[in-house]
């Protein structure tokens, strides 16, 4: 590899309340990768994401982002959390939500400068939400809110973008637009997206990580039968390129 990796995960173990969630994860992500993190529910996808973000601490092993701890690399990380409609009544404008992406932590009387406000405007324009800047965040639809969260992640000019189920509350058309934007961003930014929608994803991604306690990394934009079987622990059949899988009837009996 020519360039040094963006993220290096080494011998990472994580358990929650004594239950193992991730075991011996090794993962190297290179610049301008577009990685899809897939796997069964409860398999540890979001946990892996949170470990890479520094929101969780591993029991064992290390996570390096640009050679630093995730906390030290905070300035180069953009994060779009899952839109689960929390805090809808919160009195905050769209613009103020986006400005949060310019936070550098640790107090200060005057936080947001002119450049911050310009960056917020550009980010909102990029997701076509500038005209909604004065709205309360709770008045928006789920899909609109998701775009605002996207702008909030972009406003910090990240080098890596983490997205957790970014299109869960977005309609089909919105999803396509959303991934087109991601693809465009991917020219400069490493993108890591946790998602179910392999169908949409398959035409954008460059690599895949299957997470099911263990992580299986595949450095190509395709999901192989072996990966799915390892990840989902069930016999599967790939119907077409991009279609996730169909569980064969013989396994469905309980």
């Amino acid at each position: 590899m020519v360039s040094s990796p963006v993220i290096e995960v080494h011998g990472l173990w994580f358990s929650f309340n004594g239950n193992p969630v991730l075991e011996d994860v090794n993962l190297t992500i290179h610049p301008r990768d577009f990685l899809a993190v897939i796997g069964p529910n409860g398999g540890g996808k979001t946990t892996l994401l949170k470990l890479m973000l520094g929101l969780l601490e591993p029991d064992r092993g290390t996570v390096r982002v640009f050679g630093h701890s995730p906390r030290e690399a905070a300035g180069s990380i953009g994060y779009v959390p899952q839109e689960i409609g929390i805090n809808k009544g919160f009195p905050i404008s769209v613009r103020d939500v986006v400005l949060m992406g310019r936070m550098r932590g640790g107090g200060g009387w005057r936080r947001f400068s002119g450049p911050d406000k310009i960056a917020a405007r550009q980010a909102l324009e990029r997701v076509e939400m500038w005209e909604y800047r004065k709205r309360r965040i709770g008045e928006l639809s789920g899909g609109q809110r998701q775009r605002v969260f996207m702008a909030r992640a972009l406003v910090g000019e990240p080098k890596i973008l983490f997205l957790d189920e970014p299109t869960a509350s977005v309609d089909q058309k919105g999803q396509t637009d959303f991934y087109a934007l991601l693809k465009e961003l991917n020219e400069n930014v490493t993108v890591i997206v946790v998602s179910h929608d392999l169908m949409v994803l398959s035409s954008y991604i460059k690599s895949v990580a299957c997470v099911s306690q263990q992580v299986f990394f595949h450095d190509a934009p395709e999901i192989t039968k072996d990966m799915l079987e390892m990840a989902y622990h069930c016999p599967v059949e790939l119907i077409a390129h991009g279609v996730p899988h169909r569980v064969l009837p013989k396994h469905s009996g309980e």
Partner: peptide, 12 residues
């Protein structure tokens, strides 16, 4: 508003 996001941004 969003504790996790704040944490990612380095807010203590």
């Amino acid at each position: 508003y969003d504790e996790e996001f704040a944490q990612v941004r380095g807010v203590p």
